[in-house]
Write a protein that binds this DNA or RNA. Structure first.
Lengths: 231, 231
DNA sequence: ACCTGAACACCGTTCAAGT
DNA sequence: ACCTGAACACCGTTCAAGT
């Protein structure tokens, strides 16, 4: 009986000690429940039953928090270790997994477009992609530059498609573009007019796959220029 | 006569009537002077000597305003009409001009990464790129899909390089990545370790040029899959 | 119609002070 | 050291009311 004789311990959520990992985990929870835009320092502080200032002990600022959340999410990417099949298909699978993780959280995916990521899970993705490019015989110098573009395309298409169904306004954002295109005369914009809706059909699976193949084919066949002075 | 006998007209800056174009133009001014992050509805209303609510008559929301500002900026892109030279070099010039316009205003450039643009100046860029791809003999179906990726890369590299020197924190953001990379053991991340700083050297001119050539070569040589159901 | 004051419901970040 | 209340300096957007 009286298992509650000491009432001090274990209040309902048993306010846990603040740690960076705990903060990021809670942030991810709030994001899944309410969307990234609601993951603010103040909202998060409330969730953790403290004041916003306390978070700054563990997190530099909001941007860094969002980057950490994103890396947390990237833990779910299936890197296809030891999978079978041709390297190109396995690469396609890894990038597809990366895309679908971002896809589920498009507004966080924007972070990946705008911030330089450097978390462990992101680096694991980079390593996996590099391994597959090597397996495909791509020279290391070309692979080093190709991996960025590959992940850029994966991210951007995830943002684009994912954003579409998230907010109701996005449907219209697309319609605005379609309308703009329809309103153009073939006189001033012959090429756009000629292509019509094909220009704007959005990144369906086969379009994304085509973009990957373009990049792979191009990167395999295009020699890198000699190294320049940089920085 | 005496049309100016009433002194009510023309106080110092002669508070101009609100128009959409005027609002956007002022917004661009504020941006050039203080950066995009300071272009808020409230700040802009102050500049225009009115209340924030008034702006909503002409502008849907902040995102739409930013997109309009960006399109305004894109008026400066040199489309190289009637220029001489090989199509590939002229395309490189157009994309370079597009990049340098965004480069000057990296935080606005992020808008281009995250929003579907549809302004007249953006469409002029698309039309120019399509014309050059056609001149280069790229089949229309491939060109329609390539133009997006080309502009995506141009935008992303502008954001990356431009963001670097804008805010002081960005220097360190890059250093964080370099450190992360250096901290990785060759055991767990052999490919990253082998490539080292090459992976992270940032988009210098030759690297961007290489990416364009990769894309062009790939898009020229990669057939499009048959059209799928979309929407 | 066009414009606006005021209100609603929030923000990020810092800092002096506490434990 | 770690944590925090309170403050500073802002936000976007809506709406009822005015002209």
């Amino acid at each position: 009986m009286d298992r509650n004789s000491t009432p001090s311990r274990r209040e309902r959520p048993a306010k846990p000690a603040l740690t960076r990992a705990g903060i990021v985990a809670t942030a991810v929870d709030v994001m899944r429940a309410e969307g990234v835009e609601r993951v603010t320092m103040r909202r998060l502080a409330k969730e953790l039953d403290t004041g916003p200032a306390s978070l700054y002990v563990y997190v530099k600022d909001t941007e860094e928090l969002h980057a950490a959340m994103l890396d947390e999410l990237l833990a779910e990417v299936d890197l296809g270790d030891g999978g079978a099949g041709e390297w190109r298909d396995r690469l396609w699978a890894v990038l597809g997994s990366y895309r679908s993780v971002l896809f589920a959280q498009p507004s966080l995916a924007r972070v990946a477009l705008v911030t330089r990521l450097s978390g462990p899970h992101y680096l694991a993705v980079v390593e996996a992609v590099l391994a597959l490019l090597d397996e495909g015989g791509m020279p290391p110098g070309q692979a080093a530059w190709a991996v960025d573009v590959l992940l850029l395309i994966a991210t951007a298409t995830a943002v684009e498609t994912g954003g579409r169904q998230e907010k109701p306004g996005a449907e219209r954002e697309h319609d605005v573009l379609v309308e703009s295109l329809a309103g153009l005369s073939a006189e001033t914009h012959p090429y756009i007019a000629a292509l019509g809706p094909d220009l704007v059909s959005g990144p369906g699976p086969s379009r994304v796959r085509w973009a990957f193949d373009v990049l792979l084919n191009g990167a395999l066949s295009t020699a890198r220029p000699p190294i320049e002075e940089h920085r």
